[in-house]
Computed example of a mutant assay.
Amino acid sequence: MAAPRDAEIHKDVQNYYGNVLKTSANLQTNACVTAATLVPKYIRETLKNVHEDVTSRYYGCGLVVPERLENCQVLDLGCGSGRDCYMLSQLVGKKGHVTGIDMTKAQVEVAKTYLEYHMEKFGFQAPNVTFIQGCIEKLTEAGVQKESYDIVVSNCVINLVPDKQQVLQEVYGALKYGGELYFSDVYASLEVPEDIKSHKVLWGECLGGALYWKDLAIIAQKIGFSLPRLVTANIITVQNKELESVIGDCRFVSATFRLFKLPKTEPAKRCQVVYKGGITGHEKELIFDANFTFKEGEAVEVDEETAAVLKNSRFGQDFLFTPVGATLLAMRGRSELETKDIIRDPFKLAEESDKVKSKHAPDGTGGCCGKKQSCCGKKQS
């Protein structure tokens, strides 16, 4: 049973996104949105097919679109009015399926209203999208079946739920072995102080409920996930002086992580992998995370953890694997992998990204929010 404070948070969130906001124009903050020019063409094309009434009620903070979606079963946490679901439904195709779950009744009703419109628009004979009302920390209670999804996505929603571990536990149960949670969220540089947690505005701005970034790995591994793989990150700054005084020394970052539910098999060994190419939108190059980019036909040495993820997930068919023997390592001396600085800290990645961006363009994207945004507009769970 939810604690009184948790129940109050749920009530406030439902009221704001069900009654206060009618369209994204009603947001009282700078909503974080991925710049259209930086969105891959194949995704932009799918978004053009989504009805304007759905997109106008979208409060997400960017795009969360993992690779190789064809024929996959996908679950969208906090789907809101369904924009991402309808976008993803085109990418999974007729043989795939997308389920959206949201706790706000008004949002789910909007999403359902345009189901027939989108199926006709996409040329699908039967719907490949389902919307259900429920809480993301109670997936089983909402009717989500165990081990039924290849991918779970979440767009800046988990930070709004008080019990993050329960959300991840439910997601772990819903995923098939080899499945992935691909999600953007807001993280703090330290354990968030109580005065920030109890501040309604900061909670609504995605900051009050932010998880200390180091706790993500602890919670994930406790549940059974592999180590979180950092994809992108951006620093969040607050322009409001009053809110700045409340935040104090606590810093915030928006970041995208991937978590994999791997089968209990023999430990993978370090090896060389060669990307075969051909994944839609990533035919020549697959930027897997902040540490590994795979170009078609090029051999890349990967650690045991990365080898296990690639072999045992939906990406296994896209790579050739060659064991790296001790003799080969001895001949080469210290391997490139051994000298590679693996980045797991989103604040470190965000700072490095800012340095690169400042040399090329004033605006950036990635993670959950754009560069130096003060807050997040978002879909709700």
Score class of each variant (00 low, 15 high):
8 E>H: 05
9 I>N: 14
9 I>T: 13
10 H>D: 14
11 K>R: 13
12 D>P: 02
15 N>K: 09
18 G>L: 03
20 V>N: 08
25 A>F: 10
26 N>R: 09
33 V>Q: 10
41 K>F: 10
44 R>M: 05
46 T>H: 10
54 V>L: 11
58 Y>N: 15
61 C>E: 07
63 L>W: 03
66 P>V: 00
72 C>S: 15
72 C>A: 15
76 D>C: 14
77 L>F: 10
78 G>K: 07
81 S>T: 09
85 C>T: 12
90 Q>W: 05
103 M>F: 11
108 V>G: 01
111 A>V: 07
117 Y>P: 02
123 G>C: 02
125 Q>G: 15
126 A>S: 11
129 V>I: 15
130 T>M: 05
132 I>E: 06
133 Q>T: 03
140 T>N: 04
144 V>T: 06
145 Q>N: 11
146 K>T: 10
146 K>I: 03
146 K>S: 13
149 Y>P: 11
154 S>D: 08
157 V>Q: 03
164 K>C: 11
164 K>Q: 12
164 K>M: 09
165 Q>C: 10
168 L>S: 13
170 E>L: 01
172 Y>G: 10
172 Y>I: 02
173 G>P: 05
174 A>T: 04
183 F>E: 11
185 D>V: 05
185 D>I: 04
186 V>L: 00
188 A>W: 02
198 S>G: 04
202 L>M: 07
205 E>R: 12
205 E>Q: 12
209 G>E: 10
217 A>V: 03
221 Q>D: 11
231 V>P: 00
231 V>A: 00
234 N>D: 13
235 I>Y: 10
235 I>T: 13
237 T>Y: 00
242 E>H: 06
243 L>D: 13
245 S>E: 15
245 S>V: 06
255 A>D: 12
256 T>H: 04
256 T>P: 07
260 F>E: 02
260 F>H: 09
265 T>H: 02
270 R>T: 15
270 R>K: 09
274 V>Q: 15
281 G>L: 08
290 A>V: 00
291 N>E: 13
297 G>S: 08
298 E>R: 08
304 E>I: 11
307 A>E: 01
308 A>H: 13
309 V>A: 07
310 L>N: 01
310 L>D: 03
313 S>R: 05
314 R>W: 00
315 F>T: 03
315 F>Q: 01
318 D>S: 15
320 L>R: 13
322 T>V: 11
324 V>W: 04
325 G>Q: 02
327 T>M: 13
332 R>E: 12
337 L>R: 04
343 I>A: 05
343 I>M: 09
344 R>N: 06
346 P>T: 02
352 E>H: 06
354 D>Q: 08
359 K>H: 02
361 A>E: 12
365 T>D: 15
369 C>V: 14
370 G>C: 13
